[in-house]
Computed example of a mutant assay.
Amino acid sequence: MSTLSLVLLLGSITSIALLASYLDAKFQWCLNDWMNGKCSNPFIASKAALQQQRIQEKDAQIEALMARIETLEAIVTEPAYELNKKINAL
């Protein structure tokens, strides 16, 4: 095997691996898993889609909680709230 054919072989294997990794990240395909024998159909992204949906739900929940915390902070730091609390303590 000549040096040129060895370099071309290694370059093509590297290119295929990089392309598979890019497609996995972009389209949530399981090409790397398929090449390693971990799944039978690389184009079914049920786990990845479900995980992405859960992440989006958690992000939405975090946004809602942050809005509630900001509202509570605004209420608690108002001077009228502190005065009302002192009056009620008497």
Rank of each mutant, 00 (worst) to 15 (best):
D59H: 11
N36A: 14
N41F: 04
S5W: 15
C30L: 07
I13V: 06
C39Y: 03
F43N: 03
M1D: 10
S21C: 06
E70T: 01
L50M: 12
M35H: 02
L4P: 00
A20Q: 00
A80S: 15
L10C: 14
T3Q: 10
L23Q: 03
L50C: 04
Q53V: 07
C30H: 08
I16Q: 08
V7E: 14
T14C: 12
S21G: 15
G11T: 13
W29Q: 01
L10T: 15
Q51A: 15
L9H: 13
T3P: 05
I13Q: 06
L4W: 14
S40K: 10
A25V: 05
N88V: 03
A25P: 01
C30Q: 06
K47R: 11
N84V: 07
Q53M: 06
S21P: 03
Y81E: 12
S12E: 12
S5I: 15
L65R: 06
L31P: 01
T77V: 02
E57K: 12
K38N: 13
T77A: 02
E63Y: 01
A60L: 07
G37P: 00
A25F: 02
V7P: 02
M66T: 14
N84W: 08
K47E: 09
R54H: 13
I55S: 04
I69C: 07
K86A: 05
P42R: 00
S40C: 01
L19K: 03
T71Y: 02
L19F: 09
F43V: 11
I69D: 05
T14S: 13
W29N: 04
K38I: 00
E82G: 05
Q53C: 07
Q51K: 14
V7N: 09
F43R: 03
D59L: 10
A80Y: 09
D59M: 05
M35Q: 07
I87Y: 09
L10K: 12
L10E: 14
N36L: 10
S15H: 08
S15R: 09
A17Q: 04
A67E: 09
E78H: 15
L83F: 05
T77M: 10
L6A: 15
Q28Y: 06
A80D: 13
S12L: 15
L18W: 04
K85G: 06
S5G: 10
L65Y: 06
W34L: 00
A89G: 08
C39A: 06
Q51F: 08
K58W: 12
A49M: 11
A80G: 11
A89I: 01
I87A: 04
L23V: 13
